[in-house]
Structure formats: C-alpha cells, structure tokens
Computed example of a mutant assay.
Amino acid sequence: MENGEKNITVIDENGNETLCEILLTFDSEQFGKSYVLYTPVGSDDENEDEELEIHAYSYNPGEGEDGGELMPIETEEEWDMIEEMVNTFFDEQEEEDNE
C-alpha cells in the first residue's frame, strides 16, 4: 500500500463490518459539511472492466477510537457537487498515471 492511503471500517445497520479504502475527503463551504468517498477494499481487484463501487457520505469528524459519524447525502445539489469532485479526482488520477 502506498503512503497516504487510508482504510476505514464501515459498520452497516446489521452490525456487519466492511473494510473500505478512503478515496477522497473534502470540505464544502457551500454546504458547510465535510465529505468522504470510499470504496470497499478489493472491489477493484483484477477485473478492471467492472465499475468501481464508490460510496459518498457527509461526516462529522470524531475523536478517539470510534472516529466520525457518516450521514447520508441530503440534497440533489450535494450529489451534483460530489459528482463534480469525483470527476475532477479521477481526471487528475488519470493525468498522473499518464505522466
């Protein structure tokens, strides 16, 4: 794993734990929130033809072992902003890979 990569464990409503890799975190002044985009670890292994499963949530950073609290995206405007951030992120990744 390269430096800078971080993993989180996401626990669903049934108590199931999933190890996930954080792709991107950012703050939005427009919405006054912080956001995290992550993908389950192993979801992009070996089969590059499949789409990457990306989850997006707003979050309140937390202290200590429990970390923060993930909250669902509430508005279409937030989804539009997140989609723009994702597109920019992957465009920049592609440029770095081509260098």
Score class of each variant (00 low, 15 high):
97 D>M: 14
38 Y>L: 14
18 T>I: 02
14 N>I: 02
19 L>W: 03
76 E>D: 13
40 P>W: 15
48 E>D: 15
35 Y>G: 02
45 D>Y: 01
64 G>S: 09
18 T>C: 02
58 S>E: 13
58 S>C: 10
39 T>K: 15
44 D>A: 02
81 M>I: 09
77 E>R: 14
75 T>D: 05
19 L>F: 03
76 E>K: 14
20 C>V: 02
73 I>V: 15
20 C>K: 01
28 S>M: 02
74 E>L: 14
71 M>G: 03
33 K>E: 08
32 G>C: 10
22 I>P: 05
72 P>Y: 07
20 C>T: 02
22 I>S: 05
83 E>V: 11
56 A>P: 00
14 N>Q: 05
31 F>Y: 07
77 E>V: 08
13 E>A: 04
96 E>F: 13
19 L>C: 02
38 Y>C: 09
54 I>F: 03
97 D>P: 06
91 D>I: 09
84 E>V: 03
86 V>L: 07
17 E>F: 10
91 D>K: 07
94 E>P: 00
12 D>H: 01
51 E>A: 11
80 D>Q: 13
87 N>C: 07
73 I>A: 05
84 E>Y: 12
57 Y>V: 00
24 L>F: 12
92 E>G: 04
70 L>T: 01
96 E>W: 11
82 I>R: 11
80 D>T: 13
57 Y>C: 04
89 F>A: 00
57 Y>H: 11
76 E>L: 15
23 L>N: 04
26 F>E: 02
58 S>V: 08
89 F>D: 00
14 N>C: 04
23 L>R: 10
68 G>H: 07
87 N>W: 12
69 E>Q: 11
18 T>W: 00
77 E>N: 12
50 E>F: 07
81 M>L: 15
56 A>T: 00
95 E>S: 05
52 L>H: 08
94 E>I: 08
71 M>C: 08
50 E>D: 13
34 S>G: 01
76 E>F: 15
77 E>P: 03
57 Y>N: 08
67 G>A: 06
63 E>A: 12
69 E>W: 10
85 M>P: 01
36 V>F: 08
57 Y>P: 03
72 P>T: 05
